[in-house]
């Protein structure tokens, strides 16, 4: 067996989901015996056979990626309970194994993936998807680039055909629930529990958290960073649409048109609203020149 074959075979074995008892499976996805696969390239020692030695890496892989993912989705885990969260994490990571040198990006596909897997979340599906979006947005806002905002000279040169861009750390979200306060509460609750119970509390099975009543309500949210802190800012629907259009590279005039399409804001009040929004975004340094 050459190096390439060993690495392909071993990676497939290591990344194969564990059994319910956290052991390596007896059979590979293609039906082959895992014991035979292990014996084909792993040498036994006096205490462990080839299967058992490979199993150490199989377990280690899952413990590592599952704990890394759980760190980024604390509120989602709390809402679903640790058991449901673990099953969905295994299913997610099986479909979306890491394709990046950094585990920072492990959860990048989770919100979109979760949306099409309601069977894994149960009755709180829509809320779970929103929470996943909010938590992934934190990862993006926490350490993404900060570019220089537009200068007065650059603003003076703008017209309706100008294309702008937003700070890379801004993540725009369209939600079914106003769930950011809930996420913050769940993070704080988890932090308290960890400090009270000490390390290891994360290993105990956690039932789904009891949640305060939260009503479904269309919500538009931006996660962003000011200095070193991450903030969540509610946006009017029109502002959200406008910012999304700008982020997509639409011209300024097109973005404004997209924002006010189907808007209930009376035409007479739109200019004042626009001025207020753009002022606020400029104060936050959100608007940048388009990267060339």
């Amino acid at each position: 067996m050459n190096l390439e074959s060993i690495q392909r075979e071993m990676a497939a074995a290591v990344m194969q989901p564990l059994t319910r008892d956290e052991n390596m499976r007896e059979r590979a996805a293609d039906g082959r015996s895992m014991a035979e696969i292990a014996e084909s390239f792993v040498a036994p020692n006096s205490r462990l056979n080839a299967f058992e030695r490979l199993e150490i890496y199989n377990r280690q892989y899952w413990y590592r990626v599952l704990s890394a993912l759980a760190e980024d989705f604390v509120a989602l885990r709390a809402v679903l309970g640790s058991r449901k969260f673990a099953s969905l994490s295994v299913a997610y990571l099986t479909e979306h194994p890491s394709r990046s040198f950094t585990m920072r990006n492990l959860g990048s596909h989770l919100p979109a993936w979760l949306r099409v897997h309601p069977e894994l979340t149960g009755r709180r599906h829509s809320l779970a998807v929103d929470i996943a979006k909010i938590e992934w947005a934190f990862v993006v806002a926490f350490d993404s680039a900060q570019r220089a905002p537009l200068t007065l000279a650059e603003i003076a040169a703008l017209d309706g055909s100008s294309q702008l861009s937003l700070q890379p750390h801004i993540e725009l979200m369209e939600l079914n629930y106003p769930a950011e306060n809930l996420v913050l509460d769940l993070h704080q609750r988890e932090k308290r529990q960890t400090s009270e119970a000490g390390l290891g509390s994360d290993e105990e099975e956690q039932p789904p958290a009891k949640l305060p009543r939260i009503r479904r309500k269309p919500t538009w949210l931006a996660a962003h960073r000011v200095e070193l802190s991450v903030f969540y800012l509610r946006l009017p629907r029109e502002a959200f649409l406008m910012l999304t259009a700008l982020q997509e590279g639409k011209m300024l005039a097109e973005a404004m048109e997209a924002g006010f399409a189907d808007s209930r804001i009376p035409a007479a009040r739109r200019a004042a609203k626009l001025q207020q929004w753009f002022k606020s975004w400029a104060e936050l340094g959100w608007i940048c020149a388009r990267e060339t």
Binding site: P149, L150, T151, L152, I155, A156, L158, D159, G160, L252, A253, M256, E257, R270, A271, A272, L274, Q275, Q276, W277, F278, K279, S280, W281, A282, E283, L284, G285, I287
Partner: peptide, 19 residues
Amino acid sequence: NALLLTAALAGLTGGTTVA
């Protein structure tokens, strides 16, 4: 549209000055 654009640019200018 010109009115809206003027408002947006005025907002940008004001916000940038404040920042």
